[in-house]
């Protein structure tokens, strides 16, 4: 290849006014937030919330989480989706962990459909924070999709004892998905 990939660098502690300004009360408009659906968006309304933990078990208060997902029919709002882009649901959310009193990220979205015949419903995640020199890729699966999860090729590629780190649990009206950077419950991160 002719050119080398530009190296990644950490998002640092001060991304909020540039990347998530409305959430943090700055004057610039945001391109995305945790509120991902419109009143007329089709599909099951869900909330996904979680916290990010460092290796000492402390909550990370300066992380930024981005999620990318299909609509309720499993279509992505992107020209590469062969079934046609769904422009009515953008499918992208971005939220920092610095504004919620419990330092949660919170996405109000819809449950994604299956994007192909083999994969279980899932949401694609990237994690950024001070101290993370390049972003980390992970995925959110859903605990109430046990049969589909059991046949999902990505989940099956993960050692069985670690699969649970990728599965959001239903808690009341929300799905809980905590991200552990290290430790016994270290979240599975992908070489995507």
């Amino acid at each position: 290849m002719a050119l080398k990939q530009t190296p990644s660098q950490t998002v640092g502690p001060y991304f909020a006014y540039g990347l998530t300004p409305e959430q943090y009360g700055y004057s610039m408009t945001s391109i995305a937030s945790g509120a991902m659906r419109q009143p007329d968006t089709e599909g099951e309304r869900i909330r996904i919330e979680g916290r990010v933990f460092d290796g000492a078990g402390n909550t990370v208060v300066d992380a930024m989480i981005e999620i990318w997902q299909a609509d309720s029919q499993g279509r992505y709002a992107h020209p590469a989706d062969p079934r046609g882009s769904n422009a009515r649901f953008k499918g992208f959310g971005r939220m920092g962990t610095g504004t919620d009193p419990e330092h949660r990220f919170i996405f109000d979205t819809i449950k994604p459909g299956r994007v192909d015949a083999t994969q279980a419903p899932h949401i694609n995640v990237v994690v950024f924070m001070r101290g993370l020199l390049l972003h980390a890729y992970t995925r959110i699966y859903f605990a109430d999709e046990a049969a589909a999860n059991a046949a999902d090729p990505v989940l099956q590629s993960v050692p069985a004892e670690r699969r649970d780190t990728l599965i959001a649990k239903r808690e009341g009206d929300s799905y809980r998905f905590d991200i552990h950077m290290q430790g016994e419950r270290e979240t599975v991160f992908f070489d995507a």
Binding site: D54, A70, S157, Q182
Partner: peptide, 29 residues
């Protein structure tokens, strides 16, 4: 040397992910 990394860097090997439509698409702005 960058002292925020030791408690925040993933410690386990990344798991290879075969690219699917989920990876080949992305937000459009």
């Amino acid at each position: 040397e960058y002292k925020s990394t030791p408690l925040r860097a993933p410690t386990r090997a990344l798991i290879p992910l075969k690219q699917t439509l989920s990876e080949l698409t992305g937000p459009v702005y």
